[in-house]
Design a binder for these strands. Structure first.
Lengths: 110, 110
DNA sequence: TTGACATATTCCTATATGGGAATATACTGA
DNA sequence: TCAGTATATTCCCATATAGGAATATGTCAA
């Protein structure tokens, strides 16, 4: 079996570096496809394909205005990622505490 | 060009559902491979392969004890994911505020 | 209607994958 | 040394890419 489709969920969609760049770029305000290409220095067909993937998983939304199509990031679709990674926060905080304690003990002993 | 390797970075490694399950399972405490297989109901070769991917990107660490190899999640390797998704927090919070305001205005008018 | 701009789609291809099955390796205890 | 347990690796394969190039679709303005 191959890898799950990029459109199967948000985690697969954001695995690609360019798509993460696009999401960050479109978070502040909506932009036409052309701006994405120009500002991120990516070929237009590539951008259109990435945007399609992002749209299919709900990570971007669109609005047509004449010839242009404006895309914007739908930030809330990233909440599952944020929440999932948050599950691990206590563990790395605990880890940091341990490292710190060890360092302090070490400093005291020596 | 195919998709980037699953071992190319943390984002690609966690795209797979089973690997996310394994990370959650190994976050609390270290476990031998067999426990992962049994508790997550996954075939052993599959688990070994997933663990290899996770280890290559630093998401798990190992300790050998006799015949067994204990794996544990290295939570801090997930910080980049958490931090990246945090960039979007202000946007979905803003969005929620807007929705709320709109609802309240609507309620007042009607 | 036609030309020009904006975006989307189609074709093509090399490649990494995840699963299943079989097998190899590593280590222990008798 | 050998059997047995624990884990890792190898083989095989169907499949979904991402990129580049070419082309199609859509929309406006004159």
């Amino acid at each position: 079996m191959p890898r799950a489709a990029t459109t199967s969920d948000v985690f697969n969609a954001i695995a690609e570096t360019s798509r993460r760049s696009i999401l960050a770029y479109l978070a502040e305000r909506e932009r036409p496809v052309n701006d994405v290409c120009a500002d991120l220095n990516l070929p237009q067909p590539s951008v259109s394909k990435h945007l399609k993937v992002l749209r299919e998983v709900g990570l971007v939304q669109t609005r047509r205005e004449g010839r242009q199509v404006f895309y914007r990031t739908n930030a809330s679709a990233l909440r599952p990622v944020h929440e999932w990674s948050s599950l691990f926060e206590r563990y790395w905080l605990r880890q940091l505490t341990r490292v710190k304690e060890r360092a302090e003990r070490g400093a005291g002993i020596r």
